[in-house]
């Protein structure tokens, strides 16, 4: 076993940090690392925390860490912020709200840049969760970038999704739309100290009533919180844990985790095929030449890909 894997399993924070960097940078040993730590995974519970920019996700995470530490749980946080589409750089500032826990040995906080990934998390997040799980953290909180309507990938990584909403984002028609409003398990109306917070709660409840209520229906909690005033956090914890308990009883948690594995396998397969295919095609002829041909209307993008894919299937031999 590589030394890094051993130290991750021992829970050494420097090793955990380096392992996450390996994943982010697609280090050549990344896959071996994951293979070796994978048997130690499966104990952690993963909560996704998502919502628009400035809705209070980081501040809520800060309060959740406090509560979880008080009952002796080890907590890890992955906080994702966007990378610049221009420079590729990023300012990762979610830690600011959580720095009170910086010196607590039972807390590990890692900021991640999205690095061009569009789903609200980074491409490395799912493997980083495995590292934190294997290192013995009981609860892993994934804080997404501030989302709009379609950044829903956190759903594929978490056991439960907390969708944080605030007053002032629009009427109930916004809440009725597809996308991010559909992925919440627990709806958090934060900034409850503001005047129109009650209205947001009423609108969310109204929309949730439209959900089909079959035998497997578990009611989605709607919780009012004020991260600023430290209010409603205990209720949020209670409702979330209760919800997790219920989906576990009905077998939905296991189904969710299996769906996550299916999605992951699909992602790995398409990633690998894409890489091999791209290398194969670009070895044959420069991509620029093809772009020129397609630009000149000598062939269409589909016929280009189909032709090359056929040759790939015929000639490809694993190096």
């Amino acid at each position: 076993m590589i030394e890094l894997s051993e130290n991750v399993i021992k829970g050494q924070s420097r090793a955990v940090a380096r392992a996450i960097s390996w994943i982010e940078n697609d280090h050549e040993m990344k896959e071996s690392l994951i293979d070796q730590i994978y048997p130690y995974c499966g104990k952690a519970v993963v909560w996704g925390i998502t919502g628009p920019p400035g809705s209070g996700k980081s501040s809520l995470v800060d309060h959740l860490i406090f509560r979880m530490r008080a009952v002796g749980k080890k907590v890890a946080v992955i906080a994702v912020d966007p990378s610049s589409p221009f420079s590729g750089g990023a300012i990762l500032g979610d830690r600011i709200r959580m720095q009170k826990h910086a010196t607590d040995e039972g807390v590990f906080i890692r900021s991640m840049a999205s690095r061009g990934h569009l789903g609200g998390v980074s491409g490395a997040t799912s493997d980083a969760i495995k590292v934190l799980d294997a290192a013995g953290y009981d609860l892993i909180l994934i804080e997404t970038i501030g989302v709009g309507q379609t950044e829903i990938e956190v759903m594929e990584l978490s056991d439960v999704v907390l969708l944080v909403l605030v007053p002032g984002l629009g009427d109930e028609i916004q809440a009725l739309k597809a996308g991010v409003m559909e992925i919440g398990d627990v709806f958090v109306v934060n900034k409850s100290d503001r005047d129109d917070a009650d209205k947001v709660r009423a609108e969310v409840k109204y929309i949730l009533e439209f959900k089909e209520q079959n035998g497997n229906y578990i009611e989605n909690p709607v919780v009012m919180t004020s991260a600023k005033l430290n209010e409603g956090i205990d209720q949020l914890l209670k409702d979330t844990e209760n919800y997790l308990h219920n989906i576990n009883l009905k077998g939905q948690l296991e189904a969710r985790r299996k769906l996550r594995i299916l999605n992951e396998i699909n992602r790995i397969i398409s990633g690998k095929i894409e890489e091999e295919l791209k290398t194969f095609i670009t070895q044959k002829e420069k991509l620029d030449n093809w772009i020129e041909k397609i630009y000149q209307k000598k062939c269409s993008p589909y016929s280009f890909v189909n032709e090359n894919f056929k040759t790939f299937l015929k000639e490809y031999k694993k190096p």
Binding site: S84, G89, L92, R95, S111
Partner: peptide
Amino acid sequence: RALKDAGYEVIYTG
């Protein structure tokens, strides 16, 4: 901000 614009990932802790 300037380091972000230069392409680095900057963690700011306040």
